[in-house]
């Protein structure tokens, strides 16, 4: 009986001493596991930069911007239009026409 009491007491003491260290380590960990609810998407987006993208995905290769002979910007196209009399075609987009991912 005395042995059992001593074992329980020792176990309790060990838990009491080790637990704060485990909690402190856990707070500093980036992997919070499944024990908490997932963070809202907007928080993920706010705190997630491009640095989280892994491997080859970081590369953003240049691609051909279609088969059109583009002027170097709207101002250049306007200047050319003043000389040629042709209308300006301004192709607007979200992103870069000459990059794979933009």
């Amino acid at each position: 009986m005395r042995r059992i009491f001593a074992f329980v007491a020792a176990t309790g003491l060990a838990v009491a001493l080790v637990a704060p260290a485990v909690v402190a380590q856990d707070r500093g960990s980036t992997d919070r596991g499944k024990r908490i609810a997932e963070a809202p998407v907007e928080n993920v987006l706010k705190t997630t930069g491009n640095t989280t993208i892994l491997g080859d995905v970081q590369r953003n290769p240049t691609v051909a911007a279609g088969a059109v002979k583009w002027h170097d910007g709207l101002a250049a196209a306007r200047a050319a239009a003043m000389k040629s009399g042709r209308p300006v075609l301004l192709f607007q987009l979200l992103g870069q026409l000459d990059q794979e991912f933009c």
């Binding site: 279609g66 059109v68 002027h71 709207l74 040629s84 075609l89 607007q92």
Partner: peptide
Amino acid sequence: AALISSRFEPAWQNVRDA
């Protein structure tokens, strides 16, 4: 592309990142 290159003065513009 041929129509645009021959009849217009074309330029492209990024309005924001996609």
